[in-house]
Write a protein that binds this DNA or RNA. Structure first.
Lengths: 251, 251
DNA sequence: ACCTGAACACCGTTCAAGT
DNA sequence: ACCTGAACACCGTTCAAGT
């Protein structure tokens, strides 16, 4: 079945992906050494991921290319494809282990306060790791070290009277608030760095528009200020109050 | 000042960008015709933007390239740079006018219900225009036709007792909820299309992890289902309740 | 089993020149 | 004023071959 050499190579890539999952980073390697089978590896998969992560940390997702990683670890671009299936997989692998680099904070005993504290910890951590936010938009929860936060949020939600299902939904809503804030905060910063690029709102408002948009027209002058003053903690507090008020309410 | 021909060309690009802002799409053109000055234009700026928008609608942001737009409007890539400053500007220009293609819905008189209705309208509209969500992550509010939604949200918030400033913050929070939901809904759909790509959570949980993450372990089996069952309307309702409860509370 | 080299089919953008 | 052509410095990935 599909028995070309190429297919066998693909399976090897699968093995490496599996290693990231079951946390046994040297098992396959040792096996190969013990068996004395195959060519000795010149390229350590860990080096690929570490280099990719460094580029992401220093310069962001846009700067990461397979060719650049290859150059910096000292191989050809194609050697990488032996260890990862494609660029997306490499991006996912860079995520593993990042949460463990941040110390786990002391959390308040009160469940409502804990809910807010964990959510703010997520926000604060990711604000300092903007590349993680970019990679996370690909979708998956891949870093096991980050799961304690989800566990705490769901647990605190349940302690506050939510059903487990409601608590998971609450987690997702809080995550949307955190993620949205981080994305648009970054977008603002990027635009601030390019001062010649035109700002559209509220500058584009004409007098005719102002008549139809009275509230926005009144706020136009302070809009920039308002955008900067957005206080995540305060807003998340309000969102949590709303989510917890669901407790015991019929579906 | 900077008096090379090249600088003059750049200014022309500036003129076109300005036209999008002050809604006088033919002024510069007519002036040129009247004056009989310069070479007659072969390439209509509107055609560039329209073609770009068609590609975005049909195939998404990843499929849009300057070279492809150029080919489809029948010019060279470089001709485009006469009408837009760069690819980012072209993306922003495609946004203008999209909100006007969606009929404005009837809204309930009750301000709390109106808040929810407008937010859901935003969500529903953008769910049908995934490319807009992708472009919006660049940051700016560029489509004047979309401002009535912000106005309604701020207005309804004020009617519910929020200060204008609180109402703007509430708008941003609601926008984060809408945007986050759309981003991760899309990510889920994309991953569903590639069935061979491995799912990480909750499959990566070992028994040891399960002991430390009791709530997540208990929910592991129903996780996929839970993710699909997320009901935006219900969650936005809860968020709105929380945001409105801020009314009258000290800062 | 692991790696290389050449190639394919692309990118955004600059520069100098043409009409 | 508007457009072209060639070029620069890149991409992700496939394929066939080498050890």
């Amino acid at each position: 079945m599909g028995g070309t050499l190429l297919y066998a190579y693909r399976n090897q890539a699968g093995v490496w992906a599996g290693r990231a999952r079951d946390n046994e980073p040297v098992a396959a390697e040792e096996k190969a050494k013990k068996r004395g089978v195959g060519r000795p590896r010149r390229l350590e998969p860990e080096a690929i991921v570490a280099t990719a992560r460094r580029i992401l940390e220093e310069e962001g997702v846009a700067a990461l290319s397979m060719r650049r990683v290859a150059k910096e670890v000292g191989t050809t671009p194609m050697a990488l494809y032996h260890h990862v299936r494609d660029k997306d997989e490499l991006l996912m692998l860079t995520l593993a282990g990042t949460a463990a680099t941040v110390p786990r904070p002391e959390l308040p005993a009160d469940p409502r306060a804990r809910l807010l504290a964990v959510t703010l910890h997520m926000h604060g951590t990711l604000a300092r790791m903007p590349w993680v936010v970019e990679v996370l938009s690909l979708g998956d929860l891949t870093d096991k070290g980050a799961l304690w936060m989800v566990e705490e949020i769901v647990g605190a939600g349940v302690e506050c009277g939510l059903t487990p299902v409601e608590a998971v939904r609450a987690y997702r809503t809080l995550w949307h608030c955190v993620y949205g804030d981080l994305v648009f905060r970054r977008a603002m910063e990027r635009r601030a760095e390019e001062p010649d690029r035109k700002r559209y709102f509220p500058d584009m408002l004409t007098d005719a528009d102002a008549a139809e948009l009275p509230h926005l027209a009144a706020l136009a002058d302070s809009w920039a200020e308002l955008t900067e003053d957005y206080d995540v903690a305060r807003q998340l507090g309000a969102v949590i109050d709303g989510l917890l008020a669901q407790a015991g309410r019929p579906e």
